[in-house]
Design a protein around this nucleic acid. Structure first.
Lengths: 194, 194, 194, 194
DNA sequence: TATGAATGAGGGTTCATTCAT
DNA sequence: AATGAATGAACCCTCATTCAT
């Protein structure tokens, strides 16, 4: 019946982790929902945590690789920011469950995993920081601490995620455009100060 | 023995919840860390969840009340945004543990509590939205969907929070100023488009 | 307020023991229902079991003493049986709670107490047995093993007690008469065999 | 390990429930006595109460079904009474533990269960009542309130049960005969009144 | 590959009892 | 006499994990 039991397990687990959180999702529940035996999960994964990590890895790898490719001086700095936002929105849209799972379960996961996640985040921040610095050198962007801004951009990009039953409206491109526009020009209508 | 056992329990629990998450913090651990008997916790709190909620309520009430007072047309719209950011940064700075606890444990808490949190968030969004609309009418702000922007401001304000071992640099006022400036003017240096 | 705290405690405890059983009645619940502090109970009683025993002793003593007085050869044997039934019905009627408590909690009480209860029951059986033997000698009663009959009388006398929402109908005297009549003459209408 | 773990659990639990009562028998004690892990019990039973109910159901069903079959107008009314007594004695003899468990733990069990038990008892009373009324119509039995007598018969039939280290002497048939004889003819030797 | 019975550590919670006040 | 905060043993139950099949 199951062409690929492993995928079946991961999909089911992802759904339940996102719905109820890591701690409140039992191996039994995953097995039952997936229509397999409890023991089978342990044939494919070493532990519950291993299952969680595997899901994140599988789903997040694509996104992360795309972002890593933005670390390229031949891409215009605005484009890097635009694409970073787009990739992030896209990832959240296509992997709503993983995103939710990551956002809501970060802390309950072990330190090794947290360190890995931190490392990746630091890499992303560095890529954005580098692009921002370049943009400043090229006199495109205003003067500021680029690392701070990189951090703010990271946070604002998550606005594509539905929190508290609310999210920015629109499809991926519209959301991206809105966030990008806000980041670039801010709120103020009046003449730009320099 | 302790002058105030209840406060001792809440402080200890808060520390552990923030450190290890709700599910991975046992009542036994809290009792041991607080230097009291397990049963004593149940003298002051009905359940582990009740303890969690009590902490959030106690710590969050001040912040929320301050934000609610911003819902006042006699305050200039920019000031509302500025103060919202400041209060949020302040809250996070002074209640680092609660903030972390809230951010990382939202999903594992029961629905009643989640609904209450959502309600509060919606109120905050509405206050910002109202201020933004007023700012637009007064021709201060650019045209945009104010609810979307309110949502982005909420997300960006959280940048004061140390995630992944990184946060915006500076004291409360400096952080606030940086975020406010970014929100108002964005990245771009060039002449403002209208 | 409380003229006699001890009586207050015993009355309240009796009510709750009868309602919910010994194990499911907590000291806290008794204290709360009695409107006193938990510690106060321990001023009057050594333990929860001591409280239980005290109640039984206090309430059962009268009944038991009355029955003991039936051990008297100058009372006609039928009268002993009649009065035994009457006293038992009376006790159950006036001390419904104790009776229910005793019937439903016998086993959860310690062995010392059980032995004491057994002893008393054996005394009662012996009294009935003696009366029955005397009645046989006097050619009033049919031939049978008097100890067996004594035991059956003991059991049938409990029919005055409301079990499963049903009991024999009537007031104390009517109930007593019905049971006595049944014991004496049985069901059969036809000519008596000898 | 054991050929049938479930039966092992039920037998062990029955033994302990009868010995010490429901509340004073812990799941740990059952597991230890049965030589299995605590968790295993929860593989077969949903809860401690479920375990209790299952035992009662399993053991009591046979008895109850037999009694229900006595609700049959083609059986002579005396025979119904005789057989009811016999089945009851038999059940108590073969299921001493269950009987004791039921008699001593009725009150500590939940209301749903109590209602079910009451219902069954009412059915039994009704069967006896019906037989008694028929016997009266056929002019076999004396005039009385048949429901009261049915209730007394139920109580006296329990005399086969060893209470307070005493019971009627003899094997099943002898006990049955003694009780039946007592019920039919009562104590009195003299000429029968009508 | 796949199962599910079995395990036992650990969870949250209750409650009889103590004792300083 | 009376209190109630504090205790900790013991409770029922869950669940990640193992392993014989």
């Amino acid at each position: 019946m199951t062409i690929n039991t492993k995928i079946n397990i991961m999909d089911t687990a992802l759904k339940l982790f996102a719905e109820k959180g890591f701690s409140d999702t039992s191996i039994s529940a995953i097995a039952e929902e997936a229509g397999i035996g409890k023991g089978t999960i342990y044939w494919y994964f070493e532990s519950k945590k291993d299952l969680f990590f595997s899901i994140v890895e599988q789903r997040g790898q694509d996104y992360f690789n795309k972002v890593l490719k933005l670390d390229n001086d031949s891409i215009e700095s605005e484009q890097i920011i635009y694409k970073y936002i787009k990739y992030t929105i896209e990832f959240i849209d296509n992997n709503y469950d993983v995103a939710k799972m990551l956002i809501t379960n970060t802390e309950i996961i072990n330190n090794e995993f947290k360190k890995m996640m931190e490392l990746k985040q630091q890499q992303v921040i560095s890529i954005l920081e580098k692009a921002l610095k370049r943009g400043q050198k090229e006199d495109k962007f205003r003067g500021f601490k680029s690392r701070d801004i990189a951090f703010m951009i990271m946070n604002i990009a998550k606005s594509g995620h539905n929190q508290f039953n609310f999210s920015i409206e629109g499809n991926i491109d519209q959301k991206t455009q809105k966030i990008y526009d806000f980041i670039m020009y801010g709120l103020i209508k009046e003449e730009r100060k320099t």
